[in-house]
Design a protein around this nucleic acid. Sequence first.
DNA 1: GGTGCGATCGCCT
DNA 2: GGCGATCGCACCG
Length: 293
Amino acid sequence: MNNMTTRKRKLAATANVCDQLNGVSERCVHRAAHPEGGHEDTRSQYFPVEDVNRARLRFDFFNQPCVDLAKAFLGKFVFNLVYVCEVLVRRQADGSELRGRVVETEAYLGGEDKASHSAGGKRTERNTAMFMKPGTIYVYPIYGIYLCMNVSSQGEGAAVLLRSLEPLQGQDTMRSLRAARRRVGSRALKDKDLCNGPSKLCQALDVQRCFDRRDLSTDAQVWLEADAGAPGTTELVAAPRIGIESHGEWATKPLRFYLRGHPCVSVLDRQAEGKLGPPGEMAEQAAAVLDSR
DNA sequence: GGTGCGATCGCCT
DNA sequence: GGCGATCGCACCG
């Protein structure tokens, strides 16, 4: 009886959460149905998600300082009751949608941040999107063959790199998209390996170079949603960013953030996690699921 | 599981 | 002309 009461309270609160985040939006109720009209529920196996409300995130969400936005992408509790995570959505030409929950980000502060493409306030044709309004997508090619996706934040030239997602919907399509670059006959990727890296997530969600400078808060093909009601963890690990070793003191600043214990994080930092003390219940549950696979 | 290496090309100096 | 906010694979233990 007490459980029912708690559940009802949670659902009631959920109905208001998305509006709270956006100041009202196109909230909608949905079923956790298979995107291709199929048969199985492909929602997360790590943090099972029940039917909840979703809302597209608008300018007000993106319009916050870079580090705050990098953390906000990883979700939070609202009213100390309902956990809200952020989900990247990609609508394909056939109308089907791919979804992945953000589990790892990096903050690139611009200006003083020597590891940022916009270090020193340097503005070029490539990095123009970093200087555009918060919520603007910055897609750039790296190593000649890959792409990375960022989202501009508050602050001159500041942006957040999306590093890893937990696949929630359209995993089979993601596998196909990822297979294009892999050797024929190689083993199928596990779900947790579909989006565990900045260029992997671009491949898996078919994020293209032409998405550069688009507005996440209005674009028809790619957007961000708040997904309210998902069980989650607030244990964030803050660690040095990846792949910027040559940038002196900025290489060591803890500007990478990820959900502790989440199996889809690209690179674990045991040292940073050690400083947090023993993991909490949610982080341990996730780690246990991973170990069992 | 961890490590080392080659691929490959746009961007900036 | 040099380098990079990466990835996949071979190899080793």
